[in-house]
């Protein structure tokens, strides 16, 4: 009885920590899909790309993976700007975003996976850092720093983005794009430019998300696909573009997954995210359907 209570407590705490990490992974999609309506299913591929860059920096130069990811954020931002530009010219302006736009991002997802396989092979890669290994102990509850540090970094990144979105002109313009493109024109802002910036930001978050992914678990190229269900489930359940909603949804999924993996085994956890996604889609269609 006592033992299972400890188990339960630990499962919930690690679920919360995992949830913080999920929030970081999802926040980019909350911007691109939730606010801009750009269905970037390749987002997890950029995250895994971030993981490999952190791995390289760590293995070759001995730099802290998270620090390295923050340094390369501007490069990710530029990558996002370029990709949005291609997307905008090729699909959005032609009014052809649905099928071909999806196929475009799917192609990118696939290309990056195969390219990583060609360069790095299919072996799992991991990083080393002082916080990987030790744990804090609060009574019976164990707080592995390997999970705690990513969670804190993730929450910090989310909070900074929240401040940016609500305090700056461009941040507010991005939110206006989400709600009402017409209002944006009244603010005398160019919607395409605003969207390009927002998309750049969303890809920039993938750099940090990738670094904390490889801190939490070893990474191999095809891991990106496992995250698609999770990311979109969280994004939809979090209310498409709401950061606080994203964090709450991410923590909920984290706890449910952690409980499943504690009591049924880790090989079942991908199924949890899918169930989550289906339930979300089945229960919350009204709010989604109103958008045309």
């Amino acid at each position: 009885m006592d033992l299972s209570f400890d188990l339960l407590g630990n499962a919930i705490v690690s679920g919360l920590l995992l949830g913080g990490f999920y929030a970081a992974v999802t926040i980019g999609v909350s911007i691109s899909f939730g606010m801009l309506d750009v269905v970037n299913i390749a987002h997890p591929a950029f995250i895994v790309l971030g993981s490999y860059i952190a791995y390289m920096a760590n293995a070759q130069l001995g730099i802290d993976p998270i620090l390295a990811s923050i340094v390369v954020m501007p490069a990710f931002y530029l990558l996002g700007v370029v990709i949005y530009h291609i997307y905008d010219v090729s699909f959005e302006r032609r009014g052809d975003a649905s099928i071909r736009g999806l196929a475009f991002f799917f192609g990118i997802l696939f290309i990056s996976e195969v390219a990583l396989v060609l360069i790095f092979g299919v072996d799992y890669r991991l990083v080393s850092a002082p916080y990987i290994g030790p744990s804090l102990h609060l009574g019976v509850v164990e707080l592995p720093l390997r999970l705690l540090v990513p969670c804190l970094v993730a929450l910090l990144m989310t909070a900074l983005l929240q401040v940016y979105m609500s305090r700056t002109f461009i941040g507010r313009a991005i939110q206006a794009v989400a709600q009402d493109p017409l209002a944006l024109r009244l603010m005398a802002a160019d919607p395409t430019r605003i969207k390009r910036i927002a998309f750049g930001l969303s890809i920039a978050t993938a750099s940090v998300a990738g670094a904390i992914l490889i801190v939490i678990q070893p990474v191999e190229p095809s891991i990106a696909r496992d995250y698609i269900g999770r990311i979109f489930a969280i994004c939809v359940m979090g209310g498409l573009g709401s950061f606080s909603g994203t964090v709450v949804a991410a923590m909920t999924l984290g706890i449910v997954e952690s409980l499943t993996s504690t009591f049924y085994g880790p090989s079942w956890s991908p199924a949890v995210a899918f169930g989550f996604l289906l339930v979300t889609l089945a229960v919350r269609p009204a709010g989604l359907f109103g958008r045309i």
Binding site: V39, I41, L102, R225, D226, I228, G229, F232, A233, P270, A271, A273, F274, L277, L278, L281
Partner: peptide, 10 residues
């Protein structure tokens, strides 16, 4: 589309 992607994993 997203659901089909997740379904393949499941």
């Amino acid at each position: 589309s997203i659901a089909t992607l997740a379904m393949a994993v499941v």
